[in-house]
């Protein structure tokens, strides 16, 4: 049976990241996008969730500077990002000082190396000027 059931959505998400792809789910029934990956659509309850490549475009919904002593790595950014497709995710913005991250800032995704925790999504400011 395991062959026909396949892997769970969390593992599929992680495997996609390992392959360098940022994919999120879209519900085949209500057409809404879903993150984090689930077996049931949190909007309509459907189990027909399809994998779609995320555009990687996003904006900052809220942001904070997590203060940390310099000898423990210094301050870092924690934010909630709203993906162009709609869902939000916890993340961080890299490439600028954490206190320069502002709500509404346009972002592009990147895949970061989490070591043993595996790859994960971070964002950088989108300076391309494209909407």
């Amino acid at each position: 049976m395991a062959d026909t059931i396949g892997l769970g959505p969390d593992q599929i998400y992680r495997d996609n990241l390992e392959s360098g792809e940022f994919k999120i789910q879209q519900c085949a029934d209500c057409e809404k996008y879903v993150f984090y990956p689930r077996h049931l659509c949190p909007h309509c309850g459907s189990s027909s969730l399809l994998w779609k490549s995320a555009s990687g475009r996003a904006q900052v919904y809220s942001t904070t500077v997590a203060r940390r002593r310099p000898d423990r790595g210094g301050d870092y950014n924690v934010c909630i990002v709203e993906l162009e497709e709609g869902p939000r995710m916890t993340s961080r913005v890299e490439g600028i000082d954490p206190d320069q991250v502002t709500i509404g800032m346009a972002l592009r995704h990147a895949i970061a190396d989490g070591g043993d925790a595996g790859p994960f999504i971070v964002f950088n400011p989108d300076n391309s000027g494209e909407a």
Binding site: T63, T64, A66, V78, C79
Partner: peptide, 11 residues
């Protein structure tokens, strides 16, 4: 992302 409890409330 090293998200702590206080970070959520700060957001």
């Amino acid at each position: 992302y090293d998200m702590r409890l206080v970070n959520g409330y700060a957001l």
